Computed example of a mutant assay.
Amino acid sequence: MAGLLPPLKPIPIKDRLSILYIEYGNLDVLDGAFVVVDKTGVRTHIPVGGVVCLMLEPGTRVSHAACALSARVGTLLVWIGEAGVRLYSAGQPGGARSDKLLYQARLALDDSLRLKVVRKMYALRFGEEPPQRRSVEQLRGIEGARVRETYKRIAARYGVEWKARNYDTSDWDKSDLPNRCLSSATACLYGVTEAAVLAAGYAPAIGFIHTGKPLSFVYDVADVYKFDTVVPLAFRIAARKPHNPEQQVRLACRDVFRESKLLEKIIPGIEDMLAAGEIEPPERFEEQVGPAIPNPDSIGDAGHRA
């Protein structure tokens, strides 16, 4: 039956639903469709090719067929903890490309090129050029001070009592309400950003401002968009003091990602940040190995292998 199915043609990343959370169900491919089956046997169909990222919470099981289909259509599978406070593992929807990895690594390893990229990230984030003759470490310090002030300003706008950014992923309930809302909101943003980074063929671990972490580049990119999207949202919800803040934050993130057309911005934004290094990306190698699951017809979108 599988041989009779027509070739899959992925939907461009920018046209997809950003994230979908799944818990307490089995993900499988039944009758050619991607479904979640609950403990009573009820099937819920998911248009997996129309979703950028599936966030898999505790209680979820995934079949081999579901993983293969997700990889084929470019949907990232992310295994997270309850309330999204931890990211345990992530699939790779399309595979990192060697030319993109070499380009990213060269920019990160050369101090002068890295500084150019960091300055571009700073300018995109704050809407102004950073001070001249500053090192990456000095710019990081300036950024930290501005971020702390920005938190205070946004908290005051929504009437939220704010002390400092303080959270412990091993003791979720120990954090105050604003910090819990912020953690949930940034987890959503990181999931979508990691999906974009991987889909574009780059390495999440090779960062420019953040370094030494598995998601350093994800944090770099997400920080550019954080204060225009999820931070005001988190404080707005914290001001309401709902009894289910994490759920409210997730739903609001889903809506703000769609309204702001975030996914249309991230991949071009990544290319813009790296282009600040002013070097040409490597040419495709003649002996370069093609994708394991080829897509014969290019759709002209950086989020897919073709």
Rank of each mutant, 00 (worst) to 15 (best):
L101W: 08
K261D: 13
R165A: 06
L77R: 01
T193P: 00
K174G: 12
M273H: 08
L215V: 03
A65W: 04
G49V: 02
C188R: 07
A187R: 05
C253I: 02
G84D: 09
A302Y: 11
C67T: 06
E161F: 12
F126D: 07
C53R: 01
D110N: 06
S183W: 08
I279H: 04
D272M: 14
L233Y: 05
I80M: 10
G32H: 00
L102G: 09
R180T: 05
L139R: 13
I270Q: 10
G207R: 02
Y151P: 09
E283G: 12
I80V: 13
G74E: 00
K9R: 12
Q92R: 15
R284V: 15
A156E: 15
A200Q: 11
L101I: 15
S298I: 09
D31H: 08
V117H: 12
G207F: 05
R72H: 05
N179I: 03
V78W: 01
L56W: 04
L5Q: 03
V52D: 06
Y122E: 10
I11C: 07
R86K: 12
R157H: 10
G191K: 08
C67W: 02
E264K: 09
S70R: 06
I267M: 03
K213I: 00
D111T: 13
V42Q: 01
R250H: 14
R157S: 11
K265L: 12
S89P: 00
G159H: 02
T211P: 02
S70E: 03
R254S: 13
L233I: 10
L87Y: 04
